Each structure stands twice: as structure tokens, then as C-alpha cells.
Simulated assay, not measured.
Amino acid sequence: MITRIETVAVIGAGYMGGGIAQSLAAAGITVTLADVTAEATSKALERLLREAGEFEAQGLFAPGSAEAIKANLKTADSIEDAVRGVDFIEEAVPEIPSIKHEVLRRICAAARPDAIIGTNTSTLPVKTLAPAVTHPERFLTVHFSNPAPFIPGVELVSGEATDPAIIPVVKAMLRRAKRLSAEVADVPGFVLNRLQYVLLKESNSIVEEGIATVQDVDTIVRSTFGFRLPFFGPFAIADMAGLDVYANCFQTFEDAFGERLATPELLKSLVAEGKFGVKSGAGFNGNFDPEMAAKLVAYRNKAYARMAQLLEELGPSPLEEARSTTSE
């Protein structure tokens, strides 16, 4: 069994596949790229090398990244040539099951039987793709987010047949590329898009009900709770705010909206046990001793202040500038 990934093939050279290839090549991993035709692959390589130089010049990539990508990223004329002999294969073709099935079959026909195969899919469960894979114990979802060169989080989704022993091997590769990985269950949408789409759906409802405009919803999200999210997830934020406070707020929501926004059972049980988060010393994230609580609050304050400074330094996004000009 493969214990360390040194060579990778990325199948699909679009913006997702190309960004994944850049990220791994910049980490010193040998990456072979292949797309639908040799010509398409060659054009993609030209774009990726040009972008890498631009990103480094802009300070978005670390010094030396463009050279590392140039040294470690190569192309193959076909899927079969790309995957032959490599340790890990990342399939990143369009989110259409029939296309993914065809590509996965071609990969399996040419790859080593022990090569680990990952699929980059936003919503498709492993169980819908695994039938196309021989030796499905080496198959899992390795879901990068767009734009792949800059978003650090990666979802790892095992199927029923996935060998648990390959997970630490994939995680080690991702760590080399300075990526954070999280293991989630094999359900449609996984975690990332289940949360993201629920937020978008509720945002649409708010606009449709006349509660706020599209622009005002975006402003609220990015300048309030969204301001916290680069540093803390929803459970950590709730622990700091107070789980008893959240329970009281959920009661208001339940009274107004019914079962759809009823108090979650896990939250109820913690509050019933007197676990209110940081202020009581225990919550969603386990125990908080006084020293940990003080460090957490100090980090939070520093993080939010730095975020405000960064946003001021960057200035408004082009979208916000356009909105401001339109409203004048």
C-alpha cells in the first residue's frame, strides 16, 4: 500500500483541476496534467504557468512558487499516459455522473491497482461514482474549493469500501500543500455545500419576503457573522457567545417560524447540563479552563481587529464600489 504520495496526476485541466495541480506542484510534488485533448492540456499548462508568475509578482504566491510549479508540473497527451505509474490521481472533470464514470473507468484501466484515486466533486456522493472504480477501497472524494490555489480547506469523503488506511496518506499530501482537511460522511453536498446552499436559500427567502435587499443581505453577512468565519466555525462562535443565549434566541425563532428553526437537540442537551460555553467552562468544544478562555478571547479580539485592518487596506471589492457609485 502507498504510504507517501510523491507523484500525482490531475485529470481535468480547467480552473478547478488546474488550480489543484498548481497547489500540489508548488509544494514540490510531481504533477502530470491531462485534459480531453493534448492541445487543451498544452493550453492549460501555458495558462497555469503564466498565472503562477502573475500570482507571485502580486504577492499572492510565496517567492519561488512559480519556479517550483514550472519544475514540477508537466503534461501528458492522454489520460492513460498521465495516470500510468503515479501514486495519486485526482479526477476533476465536470460535475456530470456519466462523464465522471467514463473518466474513472479510463483511469482505472491504466493506473496501478494500488494508486489512490480521488474525485473532486461538490455534491455527488462517493457511492454514485464508486461503481466505475476497480478496487474501490482506494477511492474517495478529495474536494477542493474554488479558487483552489487560495482556499485551504479540503473535504475528504470515504465511501463504504474506502480503506481507512489511505486517509492519513492523503492528509499528509494535503499538509505538504498547506491545506486543511476534514473528514465528512458520504451524503449529497457533504458539509461545505450543505451549509453554503442553506445560507443562500435562506438569503433568497429573506429577499423574496421583502425583509432586506440583495445588497443589504450581502452587507450583513460579510460584515457581521461572516466577519468571524475565517477564524471560528459556528460551534466555536456559539461557545463564545453563550449557549444559553442561543437557546433563548432559538425559542424566538421557533415561535415565529415553527419546526424549521426549532432549537437543536444537541444545544438543548448542553444547556440542560449547565454547559453554556466559555463562560461556564464547557460547551460544544469540550472544556474551557480559565487560561484557555482568556487566550481564546485575546485571539478573537486580535483576529477581528486584524481582519478590519485588512479590509481597510484592501478597500471595497469592485462589486461594492459599483454599488456605491450606483447609489450616489
Rank of each mutant, 00 (worst) to 15 (best):
P152C: 05
G153L: 15
T119A: 11
P113W: 07
L124M: 13
G153H: 12
V184F: 10
A185Y: 14
V126E: 02
N193C: 14
A115R: 00
D114I: 11
Y197L: 15
R175C: 12
K178M: 09
T123C: 12
L129V: 09
I116T: 02
K178G: 01
F150P: 06
Y197M: 13
P131A: 14
G118M: 05
D163E: 07
H101W: 11
R105C: 08
V191G: 04
A111H: 00
G189M: 11
D114C: 12
V103P: 00
R106E: 08
P149E: 08
E155M: 01
A109P: 02
I167R: 06
E160M: 13
F190R: 03
I107E: 04
A110C: 09
A161M: 10
I151S: 08
V103F: 06
P113L: 01
F144M: 10
P136C: 12
L174E: 01
L140C: 03
A130S: 12
R105I: 03
R106C: 09
G159K: 02
P149Q: 06
R112V: 05
R176G: 03
R194Y: 11
A182I: 13
R112Y: 07
D163L: 08
T141W: 01
A130V: 05
I166T: 05
V198I: 15
D163S: 13
E137Y: 07
L174C: 07
R176E: 08
H135F: 14
F144T: 01
L104T: 00
G189W: 05
F144L: 09
L129P: 00
M173R: 03
A182C: 14
V191L: 10
A161E: 12
S122C: 07
E183K: 10
E137L: 07
A148C: 11
V187M: 05
A110D: 03
T123M: 11
A177Q: 06
V191A: 10
P164F: 09
A109F: 12
R176I: 01
R175N: 15
I107M: 11
P152D: 02
A165N: 13
P131T: 11
E160S: 15
V133R: 04
E160Y: 08
A185P: 15
V170D: 08
R138S: 09
I151C: 09
I167C: 01
L180A: 15
P149T: 08
P113Q: 04
F144S: 00
D163H: 11
C108S: 14
I166M: 06
S181H: 08
A115Q: 01
P149A: 07
V184Q: 05
L140F: 10
P125T: 13
M173V: 03
I167D: 01
A130N: 03
R138N: 12
T123Y: 04
S181W: 10
I116Q: 03
A177Y: 00
F150Q: 04
F139R: 00
L156G: 01
L195N: 13
T123L: 07
F150I: 06
R112A: 08
T141A: 13
E155N: 02
A177F: 04
G159R: 03
S122N: 09
I151F: 07
C108G: 15
